[in-house]
Design a protein around this nucleic acid. Structure first.
Lengths: 155, 155
DNA sequence: TCCGTTTTTGGCATGTTCTGCCAATCTTGA
DNA sequence: TCAAGATTGGCAGAACATGCCAAAAACGGA
């Protein structure tokens, strides 16, 4: 899907919808000084082009009973294309893994893992992660305090 | 805000709204086998209690012209309460920083930073990060491929 | 600069959804 | 079993979404 030039109006739309994803079209149109119909058309276009990939409710982890966020770096045992893809797919399939990136540097993958507590984390590591035996050198860092999270992109 | 017990129906609501944050109340009610009014009441309650912290459009970074995601770990020069708070606030105020956590381990903070390209990243490091001179030992890892991102929480 | 083409916009009409209220139903504990 | 509280479903009026058409604006070539 080729993306048409994103102009200043589109950027305003993206800014507002990143802050408040459930704005009504009427309200959004008002904020960007446009009438509802062209505003809606722009939003639909951004959605169709995939610039807007979707909408999500942001859920408070603690209040939802998910008290532990961990950042896990790990290496794949053999860095060939096949194994990287297999590991990627296996990691992405785990619901506890809320983000997974291939990264430069000492490790191959950096994960953000969300679970209830330390005990669940231990279970996850020992029963799910280690059993992916293409994985080596697992290092965990725990979030002690989350200062900023899921913030809008700079635009 | 004390959070009432989140029951199975609430969890269904959270699951659906994490996947599709702009579901209409009618459609959501239909999916969880409830009529619209009690469904809306539950959603409002989850919002008021802060279980749902808000709604966001998920924007494609590449398509929005933000081609570089970096994970930055850093240490504060003196780990006292004052300095940690000052650094936290300064980091959180930067729009390029889309996530910032205090973490256990060798570093004090782990950041996710989103910028246009390597050049912008260099500018950000040299002009914005280093000039916070309470910051030491900056280590950057770049996302080569994003396998999974902003996924719903496991519930 | 002028004119024709293309793109974008604004307004309108219709169908859908939201939202607050009330009565009915279900749940709970004694 | 019964009563009190919590939760649900339905209804009505207001707000919103959405597709269509004409008007306005932006653009490009001569």
């Amino acid at each position: 899907m080729p993306v048409d030039r994103i102009d200043a109006t589109d950027r305003k739309i993206l800014r507002h919808l990143q802050e408040e994803g459930r704005l009504t079209n009427v309200e959004l149109a008002d904020r960007i000084n446009l009438s509802p119909s062209p505003c809606l058309r722009r939003v639909k276009k951004l959605e169709e082009e995939g610039v807007i990939r979707g909408y999500r409710a942001v859920v408070d982890r603690k209040k939802a009973g998910l008290g532990l966020t961990a950042f896990v770096s790990l290496r794949a045992s053999h860095q060939n294309r096949e194994e990287m893809l297999t590991v990627s797919a296996a990691l992405a399939a785990m619901p506890e893994v809320v983000a997974c990136h291939m990264v430069s540097g000492q490790s191959d993958f950096l994960l953000e893992v969300v679970v209830e507590d330390l005990e669940s984390y231990e279970n996850w590591i020992t029963e799910r992660l280690i059993s992916l035996d293409m994985v080596e050198d697992i290092r965990s860092n725990f979030a002690i305090r989350t200062v900023k999270d899921q913030a809008p992109l700079p635009m």
